[in-house]
Design a protein around this nucleic acid. Structure first.
Lengths: 199, 199
DNA sequence: TCCTTTTGATTGAACGTTTATTCAAAACGG
DNA sequence: CCGTTTTGAATAAACGTTCAATCAAAAGGA
């Protein structure tokens, strides 16, 4: 992940280690020892910087969300249509590096903890809001520019996010061959039918 | 769950106990001890009937899927429109008993194991196929009866399933107030716009 | 029918492993 | 020399699983 390319403090090194261990082993098989193996300090040092395992992972997620927000919240997109397709492609690219796919898997696993874990549920509630806001802004800009139909931005953004999340979830948790391209087509068809002004 | 109302063998009693423990504690906090607490035999008996914890849970899921299949695979639905809305309502009912909601949570948690657990991934791949087939048949019947547009049943069924799964996932893993009714509206709007022949 | 043998169900205690976390002490930097 | 960083070893609890022993009922034999 671009976010962790150049950690500048020990705290960030630990976050990067947590991220890498998460991608490698997944959440279920993630141990402090494995996190420690991903950087060159000892395991117990983690406890000097973070309150514990869950705290560390949450801060790791928070860090990435903050980076994403800073990147995207700057201004309205220039080309709304391109922006929304970029948003979708971001996690859906079939030629994405394996690390990205593993991260998607890990994200799904993490989110799978949310039903019984308030901290995780709070986090994903917040992250949903960030993405919702991002999509809404793109849609609003697109409507103003006349390239999108005059839909309700909030509702449409919600729908896109739901479709998107459902796609990721299904993709990460089942073995459907050739599912990714089929899903991209489906998503594309939805956008063209229900959002774009021309075919 | 109706499936476990009248367990007839010890094996089924154990499945019922696993189901109840799953609903009560969620997957992450599910222990053999807690499963044992949900029926009147001892914990170690489970190992006489099943290979272990994961085996037990998988067999529990399998049992429920088989019941569902037997229930729905009998014949084509009489009223396709009603059938598809019943399908959607089945898990989405806001006035559903709390147990059903907890089961949805548990299902999401379980499915969250799939990215790194082949047995779970195989199971959910299979269960997706069952639901896919169910929706496809409803759509085919609806097209023949002229109450549905002439869509591609496979693609449309996939889309509905994706939207549905995304909805459940979001619902179970985030705190969005009033989300359920909003989602039902959204789903309804999708069906009316892209599937039903009249408004 | 009565005794013996076998089978399957059931239990409670124990084992061994894994894992997050703590802590006292060493190393380090200014 | 003092505060911070870092370490390795120790701790303590939790948990899945095993196993030898018991028990009831069925099967078998005479």
């Amino acid at each position: 992940m671009k976010f962790f390319q150049s950690p500048e403090t020990t705290r960030e090194e630990i976050l990067a280690a947590a991220y890498r261990a998460l991608c490698t082993h997944g959440y279920a098989d993630l141990t402090m020892e494995r996190i420690g193996a991903k950087f060159d300090k000892s395991v117990s040092l983690v406890y000097h910087h973070y309150d514990g395992k869950d705290d560390l992972l949450l801060e790791c997620l928070e860090f990435m969300l903050e980076e994403y927000r800073a990147e995207t919240e700057s201004g309205p997109p220039e080309d709304p249509r391109q922006a929304i397709e970029e948003f979708c492609d971001q996690l859906l690219l079939s030629d994405a590096p394996p690390e990205a796919q593993q991260f998607v898997h890990a994200l799904i696993e993490l989110r799978g903890q949310a039903p019984h874990n308030d901290a995780y549920r709070d986090y994903f509630t917040r992250s949903d809001r960030v993405f919702q806001a991002r999509i809404e802004r793109i849609i609003e800009t697109g409507i103003e520019a006349g390239v999108f139909q005059d839909v309700d931005p909030e509702r449409t953004a919600k729908m896109i996010q739901t479709i998107f999340l459902g796609g990721l979830f299904q993709y990460a948790t089942a073995n459907h061959d050739e599912w990714l391209p089929a899903f991209r087509d489906e998503l594309q068809a939805y956008l063209e039918r229900d959002l774009y002004t021309d075919g």
